[in-house]
Write a protein that binds this DNA or RNA. Structure first.
Length: 546
RNA sequence: UGCGGAAUUGUGUAAUGGCAGCACGACAGACUCUGACUCUGUUUGUGAGGGUUCAAAUCCUUCUUCCGCAGCCA
């Protein structure tokens, strides 16, 4: 495969060439407050993939500096998902919270250098004093003597003050056009139990302070993150320049993934779970890795997608069809075919013996001869899909129609004879005659039969409900839900539709949860119905595929 | 209005002064015992103006549009 160099690699190449670094070391730093989704996958392939490309290392680090939002529940899930994708961090698994003691020492160092001070503005005052686009901020406590700062900061740690009473702030530039340089908060007081540290700490470092220190302490050379941190880079550099860390990592930003019909916002994904709109984080309609896994996506298809979308700095929205293309391509080569008649309509083969059963061999996968064949029973009474028959066919309708002939896939050619209708005009039963002479070979008289339709035996099949999953959202033009809207405004009512009384071929009765199949469907494919060409069994209901 | 970014076809992404290419999508045709798959073909693009140059997506310049930032979130 052709290898192109993206802008991150160019920057790394330059650092290598100039001798700034001798090897590449990256990190993937999820906050354990939710499950990984397809958007994280892009970051994952960039972080782990770049390290791999340069024979370097990539650490996994739980970014857990805010005890109010994080939970141990997510840590295991995150690790499992990363492993599932095929990435590994060896023994370099860290928690941001493991550095709390170091963070504290570096904060003291800043105070001693006169570069940080304890501020007692309340959150409301803080907002009031921060200035605006053209006016600088005001901070009445930035000239507090060093000794006093040291004392106050130690007492903050000791739990002598209530939440919100004091913060530690960096002394940088109150007039900066970049707001995160206007004496940013470094530490805040929080009396919340930390998922790993318990109640050991009541002051917690902010991301902007903790992250560069974590990177530097771990020997990370390139800290790759998404575009919204670009404006934080000056602060990132300020931190590594002003505390005694062993190295100075370089932050490089890239555009996060947006995809049509998909919402990446963790906040909304959690909302879907908590409101019961979906069954859980691993609902097959969710863009989470565990959801995609249940839906039938494979690590290879996801990784390949991530490599294909490229890395750039411009905001973009990838069309979901590119994502779906990958899994369709893979499953087309690997998934076994099974027949599912979703809207059954009874067919009687008039000239076929009442009590006879024949078994035809159907290929499990026409793409792969090694996949073998399976026996499918043929009897006098069959089911075909309602949409494979039309009393009043449009032009170019190749399926069963009055006076028409079609091939029953893998079995006989049948000719239409008559049909029964109910009082509403719905077709309830079709009578056909089979060309028993031609059998399952080509017509003996050389005539062409254009259409092929799928079918199952009426007696030798199983009846089941089948759940069809579709895109969860109708939202098309963005990766996030606009301000003032909720997912209710965009949720696709047909995202999970249960079809009752479907008929499935017998071989599906033995299917296990998680097995992948293509449910063979013949007939006309639209752009949307192509997506349905590959389904998979995600549940067994009453021991039947669901 | 301050600061930081970004603009290449319907979408995403290459081309780092030298034939604007690739993938997905769309459309047309061929093939087909899945109207799938496969194969062939087609269409559409450098945000705008000016400049430098034999030559500009690329360099300079002016403009336009879009995105992000004023959490004691990450």
């Amino acid at each position: 495969m052709e290898e192109t160099t993206n802008f991150i690699e160019e920057a790394i190449n330059a650092d290598l060439a100039e001798g700034k670094v001798s090897a590449v070391h990256t990190r993937f730093p999820p906050e354990p407050n939710g499950y990984l989704h397809i958007g994280h996958c892009k970051a994952l392939t960039i972080d782990f993939g770049t390290a791999r490309k340069y024979n370097g290392l990539c650490n996994l680090r739980m970014d857990d500096t805010n005890p109010a939002k994080e939970d141990t529940e997510y840590v295991d899930a995150i690790m499992e998902d990363i492993h599932w994708l095929g990435f590994d961090w060896d023994d370099r698994f860290f928690y941001g919270s493991d550095y709390f003691e170091k963070d504290y020492e570096f904060a003291v160092e800043l105070i001693k250098k006169g570069l940080a001070y304890v501020c007692e503005l309340t959150p409301d005052q803080f907002r009031e004093y921060r200035g605006d686009l053209t006016h600088p901020a005001i901070s009445p406590f930035r000239d507090r003597p060093i000794e006093e700062n040291l004392d106050l900061f130690a007492r903050m740690r000791n739990g002598e003050f209530p939440e919100g009473k004091y913060t530690l702030r960096a002394k940088i530039d109150l007039a900066s056009g970049n707001f995160c340089m206007r004496d940013p908060v470094l530490y805040r007081i929080k009396y919340v139990e930390h998922h790993r540290q318990g109640t050991k700490w009541c002051i917690f470092p902010m991301y902007d302070f903790a992250h560069p220190i974590q990177d530097a302490l771990e020997g990370v050379t390139h800290s790759l993150c998404s575009l919204e941190y670009e404006i934080h880079r000056p602060l990132y550099n300020w931190v590594v320049d002003n505390v005694s860390v062993p190295c100075k990592p370089r932050q490089i930003e890239f555009a996060r993934l947006n995809m049509t019909y998909t919402v990446m916002s963790k906040r909304f994904l959690r909302g879907l779970v908590e409101s019961g709109k979906v069954d859980g984080w691993d609902d097959p309609r969710m863009p989470t890795l565990c959801g995609l896994r249940r839906r039938g996506y494979t690590p290879a298809s996801i990784l390949d997608f991530c490599n294909r979308i490229g890395v750039a700095k411009s905001d973009s929205i990838v069309d979901i069809s590119l994502f779906e293309h990958r899994i369709r391509e893979e499953l087309n080569e690997t998934a076994a075919r099974r027949v599912a008649v979703l809207h059954p309509i009874r067919v009687v083969v008039e000239n076929y013996p009442e009590d006879k059963t024949e078994y035809f061999d159907l290929p499990n996968n026409p793409k792969d001869e090694n996949a073998g064949t399976r026996k499918v029973a043929f009897t006098k009474e069959l089911y075909i899909d309602a949409e494979d028959f039309s009393l009043d066919p449009p032009p170019k309708f190749f399926r069963l129609k009055p006076d028409g002939e079609v091939r029953l896939m893998g079995a006989y050619i049948v000719k239409y004879k008559s049909c029964k209708q109910d009082e509403n005009g719905n077709v309830t039963e079709i009578t056909v005659t089979a060309d028993l002479e031609s059998g399952c070979g080509n017509p003996t008289d050389g005539r062409k039969v254009k259409g092929t339709i799928h079918w199952v035996s009426a007696s030798d099949s199983i009846e089941s409900d089948v759940c069809l999953y579709d895109r969860l959202f109708t939202i098309e033009n963005t990766g996030a839900i606009p301000e003032g809207k909720t997912f209710d405004d965009y949720i696709n009512p047909a995202s999970a539709v249960v079809l009752h009384g479907c008929r499935l071929e017998k071989a599906l009765a033995d299917a296990k949860v998680g097995e992948k199949f293509q449910f063979v469907r013949t007939g006309y494919f639209t752009k949307d119905s192509k997506r349905d060409a590959f389904l998979r069994i995600v549940e067994l209901k009453d021991n039947k595929p669901f």
